[in-house]
C-alpha cells in the first residue's frame, strides 16, 4: 500500500492543484484512462466542498487529501476540519450550502464506492475506484 498526502490552504485556486495531483497518482496506480476524468471531477468536487466549508465556518486549517494505492483499488480521502453542525445555518450564505449539496450530488452520481462521514473533528469523503493490475496490462 502506497500513499500520497496533500494538504492545502482552503483557497479555491489550490483545488486545481489537488485535481492534477490526484489524476497523476491515479494514473500511476493503474486506474483506467477512461475513468480518470471522473476521478479528476470527483476529487475537485470534494475539495471545492471542503474549501467552501472551511471558508464558511472560518476554519483556517488546511484541507487534507490522502491518495491510497492498493493492489486492487485506489482510494481518495478528502478531509475537512469543520466539526459536524458547525456550519451555521444562514451564515455567509445559503448559496454555499446549496453548492456543497450540488457537489455531493455530482460525486454520488460519479462514484459507486463512496463513503461520506462527519464527526467532531470534521468530515471525510472517501471515494474508491478499481485498478487494473499491472500483470493484466497488455
Amino acid at each position: 500500500m502506497a500513499t500520497v498526502e496533500l494538504r492545502f490552504s482552503a483557497l479555491p485556486e489550490h483545488v486545481r492543484t489537488a485535481r492534477l495531483v490526484a489524476a497523476a497518482v491515479a494514473r500511476r496506480a493503474g486506474v483506467d484512462e477512461s475513468i480518470l476524468d471522473e476521478v479528476r471531477l470527483a476529487v475537485g468536487e470534494a475539495c471545492s466542498r471542503a474549501v467552501g466549508l472551511h471558508r464558511g465556518s472560518g476554519v483556517d486549517q488546511p484541507v487534507r487529501v490522502v491518495l491510497v494505492e492498493d493492489e486492487k483499488k485506489f482510494s481518495i480521502e478528502v478531509g475537512d476540519a469543520v466539526p459536524e453542525g458547525a456550519v451555521s445555518a444562514g451564515a455567509p450564505g445559503e448559496e454555499a450550502g446549496e453548492e456543497s449539496e450540488m457537489g455531493l450530488a455530482v460525486i454520488s452520481g460519479l462514484v459507486d464506492d463512496l463513503e461520506v462521514s462527519s464527526g467532531e473533528e470534521g468530515g471525510t469523503i472517501r471515494m474508491t475506484w478499481p485498478v487494473t493490475p499491472a500483470s493484466l496490462l497488455p
Partner: peptide, 9 residues
C-alpha cells in the same frame, strides 16, 4: 476542458 458543479451553478 473542465466543468464542475460550481460552473453548473
Amino acid at each position: 476542458d473542465f466543468l464542475d458543479s460550481t460552473g453548473l451553478g
